[in-house]
């Protein structure tokens, strides 16, 4: 699922500084699941924005709506009365924000969250990045642990010298992806594959303006 983190209220407040009627739209899929963009987040953020403006001595009307997904036009049709507002703050991921921007081409759109990664829901409120969307999956070569997402340098051939007691050089709270891979491959009895040199990735698959067409 796509994980997003809330933007600070200051940032949101500054973005909509020039507007007095704003519609805040939540998304009921990924960002709701990761507790940042569902109906509750919309309500809390809208209330906070309203109060913050009141403290500044200016009123702001904040409409609240949450749709099932902002990455589908059909669901965006459920956004009502957008024309009554001067601007829209979307709490969806970057995809949804752009969706609503396309849906309402004449309305300024502001992001209410920072889209961060594709992650696994470890437990209540805790998510870890698991996939970079590189377009060239090699999980079969690495014991089901992704080196692209889980090694800070996306190395393909083993741990760097910064590996430290199973932790990464960028932070002792982060696991070294390659130690995880090595241990997993050892457990699976596939260490012979570890010896093979993995070729540089085809980053062309990750970096272009991507689309996928299954219609044919």
């Amino acid at each position: 699922m796509i994980v997003a983190e809330p933007k600070s209220l200051d940032e949101i407040k500054a973005m909509v500084d020039g507007y007095d009627r704003v519609l805040m739209v939540g998304c009921g899929t990924c960002v709701e699941v990761c507790l940042t963009g569902g109906e509750r987040s919309v309500n809390l953020t809208a209330t906070a924005l309203r109060l913050a403006r009141k403290v500044d001595g200016r009123d702001i009307e904040v409409g609240e709506q949450t749709v099932i997904r902002q990455c589908d036009f059909e669901y965006l049709d459920e956004v009502k009365d957008a024309d009554k507002y001067e601007a829209i703050v979307s709490l969806a991921c970057g995809v949804g924000i752009q969706g609503i921007a396309r849906k309402f081409p004449n309305t300024p759109i502001f992001p209410g969250v920072n889209t961060t990664f594709m992650g696994f829901n470890e437990e209540y409120g805790y998510y870890t990045e698991m996939c970079k969307g590189c377009g060239e999956c090699i999980l079969h070569l690495t014991g089901g642990v992704c080196p692209v997402a889980r090694c800070a340098k996306s190395l393909l051939n083993g741990p760097c010298g910064g590996t430290n007691n199973g932790k990464c050089e960028i932070g002792s709270d982060k696991d070294c992806g390659w130690v995880l891979i090595y241990n997993k491959m050892e457990q699976l009895g596939t260490l012979d594959k570890f010896k093979e040199i993995n070729a540089p990735k085809n980053y062309g698959k990750a970096g272009n303006i991507r689309s996928m067409d299954l219609r044919k």
């Binding site: 709701e32 507790l35 569902g38 109906e39 509750r40 949450t66 209540y124």
Partner: peptide, 9 residues
Amino acid sequence: CAAECPGMA
């Protein structure tokens, strides 16, 4: 649960 539910469901 009610106070945590992100969808207020």
